[in-house]
Write a protein that binds this DNA or RNA. Sequence first.
DNA 1: ACGACCGTCACTCGAAAGGGTTACGGGATT
DNA 2: AATCCCGTAACCCTTTCGAGTGACGGTCGT
Lengths: 203, 203
Amino acid sequence: MTTVLVCDDSPLVRETLRRAVATVPGVERVTTATSGEEVLRRWGAERSDLVLMDVRMPGLGGVEAVRRLLAGDPGARVIMLTMAEDLDGVALAVAAGARGYLHKDASRAELRATVSQALADPTWRLAPRRLRSADMGVAPTLTAREIQVLEGMSHGRSNAEIGRELFLSEDTVKTHARRLFKKLGASDRAHAVALGFRWGLVR
Amino acid sequence: MTTVLVCDDSPLVRETLRRAVATVPGVERVTTATSGEEVLRRWGAERSDLVLMDVRMPGLGGVEAVRRLLAGDPGARVIMLTMAEDLDGVALAVAAGARGYLHKDASRAELRATVSQALADPTWRLAPRRLRSADMGVAPTLTAREIQVLEGMSHGRSNAEIGRELFLSEDTVKTHARRLFKKLGASDRAHAVALGFRWGLVR
DNA sequence: ACGACCGTCACTCGAAAGGGTTACGGGATT
DNA sequence: AATCCCGTAACCCTTTCGAGTGACGGTCGT
């Protein structure tokens, strides 16, 4: 019985991953956990062949979870999930024994390929993958202009200021703003900036 | 005789690093190499206590150089140098046995601190350095209330909504908002949310 | 060639936001 | 005791935002 355990605190990401992993040939069961603590708690009773775990989680972080998991079971295979370019987190997790990592905005195909390979080869290590966001149905695609406007907002610029910076009229900036709000599902600029950070669109 | 080996193909970077490392207390000699091949070639004759090596180098890359170096001498201590956010390179190098990494745009102080620590403690591994925050100092301290308000903003709530949620008047929310803006140095709520994410105050 | 976006700009209008200021009771700190 | 910060609340006043709407030329894919 080949099982994969997906661990992420965000229900949205968790479900997306679960569904994607479930389509990998050979995977018979996908279980989920919402925290590192839960993974450790359940590991004794019910092990998985592969664990996909978020680097950043509240409470016990992904790195520490990997460390403890491998301390108890050196054979466990873990792939870390990372939102943006989380250098520290990934490096620490790999040092702790994670087999590799995946960006959360990887395509479904890439995700499946990596999971498939990790399951097929028990000695598999680190096939880094960086990819697009659109395929996961998670992160909205903003145009270059919209991202520029969003970045301006994240720096505390007013629409007029952003306009001067980008040589646009304030009205044009407002149009871009409205469009990116709609795409992100944001109710105002503060929300948009937050979502931008959460999707890794801005830093 | 404590010696450090700096390996980078760019003369400019190499010299800068050499001079910086030379000022670390306890370091008696700093040698340089321009390629992974050179490091391996000279390692038999003349070992160093610590190697600083660029991840990206022409010919034998930094990752492969680390792998081969450690294959011949498992006790060798290597810190990788990386230009930008080179997730793949760093992860691979760490997997290959590198003790840690440093951004090339790290401050002199950061570099020296890391080298110093690596030399002092032979078991040293991965003291991740987040340089974004390094030059900013320390995160401002927000009160619990202020963080609640900031979180409300990051969820796209208006002041009135946040007030209803926290059983406060809108005016009180505005007061908290104004105070947290001042603490963060934010010009508006969007900026405040961005700074909150950058400081790790909200997620 | 025909939508579907994208980038650009304009106008209106009501609803928020944000600055300044004041105030008062309570902790904590000095 | 004096002071500083916090939590609460209110008032005024100006600026900014955001929604709605319309428009026009360009590009891309079908």
